[in-house]
Computed example of a mutant assay.
Amino acid sequence: MEKQITKKYDNGEVTVVWQPHMCIHSTICFKGLPMVFDPRKRPWITPEGGTTDAIVEQIKKCPSGALSYYMNNEIEGPVELEGDTVVEILSNGPLLVYGNLKVKDTAGNETKKSQVTAFCRCGHSGNKPYCDGSHVKVKFEG
């Protein structure tokens, strides 16, 4: 299992939280806001490259939940979404759940999730029940 680290980057107003072990490499972040998210650079996240509103909107599009944020003037923690929970099946990819939810593991431990959570459908993830992008390597179809 990949080491579960968390990295944080801020522009003074918003802190971008990146959890690489959750990333499914959808490329949505850097295709949508390349001035902030550029995997060719180190660090690859430079929040001073975009407005706070643009960064927040781009993070909300992250299908795995590897990117999240919190406003620096608020207590650190996940930003909860309002509205209905939506489930989407990505062709040849994960099951995406948009909204606030609790995930209970086999030991009974609960983890709160908000925004978007990607669940493995291929059975090959090293981070089950979450998707880690293994579906690409195994050429999952479904």
Rank of each mutant, 00 (worst) to 15 (best):
C122G: 07
L90H: 04
P34C: 08
E2C: 00
R40D: 14
G65Q: 09
E57S: 14
V86A: 08
E76N: 01
E13I: 01
S26Q: 05
D38Q: 09
S68Y: 05
K102C: 02
H21P: 01
G50R: 09
M22F: 14
S125L: 06
Q19L: 02
V17Y: 06
M1A: 13
T117K: 05
C120T: 01
K31I: 01
V97K: 09
Y9N: 08
G93M: 03
I55S: 10
C131G: 06
Y130G: 03
I45G: 05
T85R: 14
V136M: 12
D10G: 10
Y70S: 05
K112P: 01
P94K: 07
G65R: 06
G126P: 00
V87M: 14
T106E: 12
E57D: 15
L67Q: 04
C131S: 06
D84H: 04
K128P: 02
V103G: 05
E82T: 13
C131N: 03
L90K: 15
C122R: 04
E82N: 12
T106K: 13
S125K: 04
K139V: 00
H25S: 08
C29Q: 09
R40W: 09
H21M: 03
V14C: 08
E88M: 09
L90E: 14
A118H: 05
G108K: 10
S114N: 12
V36H: 09
I59S: 09
K102H: 12
P39D: 06
T27D: 13
V138E: 13
G123T: 01
H124P: 00
K41I: 07
K104P: 00
Y69Q: 08
P94T: 00
P129A: 05
I75F: 03
P94Y: 05
Y130R: 02
R40L: 12
